[in-house]
C-alpha cells in the first residue's frame, strides 16, 4: 500500500496557451497608443540640451504640420573641418558640406518651400504657421541657428521651434 501513485506512463498535460495571443495583443495595443512613430534617424549626432515648461509637439506632428531639421556633429569625424564651424545640417537625411552645395543653411529656404508644396493639399494652415523644428546639439553655435532663421524668414516660414529634451517635472 503506497501513498504515492506510480508513474503509470501518463504524460504531463501541456500548458494552455490559448490566452497568449490576448496577452500579446494587449502589449501591442499599449505600444501602439503610448508611442509615436520615429522620425528618420538623423545622419548627424544630436545630443539635445534639457529644459522645462516646453510645448509638446505631438498634436502638430499628428497633423503632419511640422518639418524637422537637425544640426549636429557629422557622424564621420574626419570630415569635421569640411563644415562651417564643425557642425552639419541634415535635411531629410542628406548632409553636405560646402556652402554652395545643396543642403547647407543656404538651402533651408528652398527645402522649406518644397516641403510646403508637398503638403499643401492636406494642411490647412498657411506657410507662416507651419512649424519648423530645429533639433540642435548642445554645442551647436547659435550663429548657425540664426542663419537658418534668416532663411526661413525669407520664405515666410515664420514659426520656429527650438527642440530640447524636457526633464519632466511639471
Amino acid at each position: 500500500m503506497s501513498k504515492f501513485k506510480k508513474d503509470n506512463g501518463k504524460k504531463l498535460p501541456g500548458v494552455n496557451t490559448s490566452s497568449l495571443p490576448d496577452i500579446v495583443f494587449m502589449l501591442l495595443f499599449f505600444f501602439m497608443v503610448a508611442t509615436t512613430s520615429k522620425e528618420v534617424d538623423p545622419t548627424v549626432d544630436v545630443d539635445q540640451p534639457t529644459g522645462t515648461k516646453t510645448t509638446d509637439l505631438t498634436p502638430y506632428k499628428q497633423r503632419s504640420e511640422i518639418d524637422f531639421l537637425y544640426l549636429g556633429e557629422p557622424r564621420n569625424k574626419a570630415r569635421l573641418n569640411d563644415f562651417k564651424m564643425g557642425y552639419a545640417l541634415s535635411l531629410d537625411n542628406v548632409v553636405q558640406a560646402t556652402s554652395d552645395e545643396l543642403y547647407t543653411t543656404n538651402a533651408v529656404g528652398q527645402w522649406k518651400k518644397d516641403k510646403f508644396e508637398e503638403k499643401k493639399s492636406r494642411v490647412k494652415v498657411p506657410i507662416t504657421g507651419v512649424i519648423t523644428c530645429v533639433k540642435a546639439d548642445k554645442g551647436a553655435p547659435t550663429g548657425l541657428i540664426f542663419d537658418i532663421r534668416k532663411e526661413l524668414q525669407n520664405v515666410d516660414g515664420l514659426t520656429i521651434a527650438y527642440a530640447v529634451r524636457d526633464n519632466g517635472n511639471i
Binding site: 501602439m32 516660414g157 515664420l158 527650438y162 530640447v164 529634451r165
Partner: peptide, 16 residues
C-alpha cells in the same frame, strides 16, 4: 516607434 516626445519652445519670427 519611440517613447520620447518632441518637446520644444515655439517662437515666431518677425515678418520680413
Amino acid at each position: 516607434t519611440t517613447m520620447d516626445k518632441d518637446q520644444a519652445y515655439i517662437r515666431n519670427i518677425p515678418k520680413k
